[in-house]
């Protein structure tokens, strides 16, 4: 039943003297929502960047879906099926929402320069499909009405959704979300939660960094806790919640 999708082992990442990731190992199973929490500066985003190919780890093992992705370029990582969003939204600000999602289809389409210039039927068909798929995804995340608007003119919550749609456009097996609920009001957070569950039910595994403990606890199947670049706990939400090391990391003191 549980089949490993992503496996990392002994991952290290150093920035000069800073040991940002120290011997991290974790396994994400197919179909689960896996939470990653930790205090600020614990290395969550660094781990995220390693997993999505933006950072190259110094040492360790990184396999995804049976493929070795250690020190691979981001485009190889995306092509293998990992897509991400950013903590501080990074949309293509001056492109329309639809175009943003269409860029996400890049890795799943192949028209060359000649295809683009000569426009043979195959290229036309591909382009039409890109457009259709992008519109579908906007529907899927709930912002079809904003297709022609510039990304920078969307509301904050809609930008978050657009980023998810753009990531989904790459047909990921693992969707990595970096604090998607940051800055959202409770209603938006609730909607986001529903969206994530919908995505999971449609067969996409989710890796989630989040500060909102309530959201994490109510959503995730398993959780890992990072502190000072080390994994200090992993397991079911309830177990992690009562783990003394986790409480210490968050509150700064050991519980009585």
């Amino acid at each position: 039943m549980t089949e490993a999708l992503l496996e990392i082992n002994g991952i290290h990442k150093r920035f000069g003297g800073l040991h940002a990731l120290n011997d991290i190992a974790l396994t994400i199973n197919k179909g689960e929502i896996y939470g990653l929490i930790g205090p600020n500066g614990a290395g969550k985003t660094t781990l995220f960047n390693v997993l999505t190919g933006l950072y190259q780890p110094d040492e360790g093992k990184f396999t995804f879906n049976g493929r070795d992705l250690f020190r691979q370029k981001p485009y190889v990582v995306v092509e293998s099926g990992i897509a991400r969003t950013f903590q501080n939204i990074r949309l293509f600000a001056n492109m329309s929402a639809l175009e943003n999602v269409m860029v996400g289809r890049h890795v799943r389409s192949k028209a060359s320069v000649f295809g683009a210039i000569l426009r043979p039927p195959s290229a036309r068909k591909e382009e039409a499909n890109i457009r259709i798929r992008a519109q579908e995804l906007l529907d899927y995340v709930g912002i079809p009405q904003h297709a022609e608007e510039l990304a920078c003119n969307l509301s904050y919550g809609d930008q978050r959704r657009l980023e998810i749609a753009r990531a989904l456009a790459t047909d990921p097996k693992l969707l990595a979300l970096d604090e998607p609920a940051a800055g959202m009001n409770p209603k938006e957070t609730e909607e986001l939660k529903a969206l994530m569950q919908k995505i999971r039910n449609d067969g996409v595994t989710i890796l989630l960094i989040e500060h909102d403990v309530k959201l994490i606890m109510g959503l995730c199947d398993r959780i890992a806790v990072l502190d000072y670049g080390k994994k200090i706990a992993e397991g079911l939400p309830e177990a992690v919640k009562s783990n003394p090391r986790v409480i210490e990391a968050y509150l700064g003191v050991a519980p009585e």
Partner: peptide, 8 residues
Amino acid sequence: IAANAMGL
């Protein structure tokens, strides 16, 4: 960076 992360 975002373009990179989208697999370009």
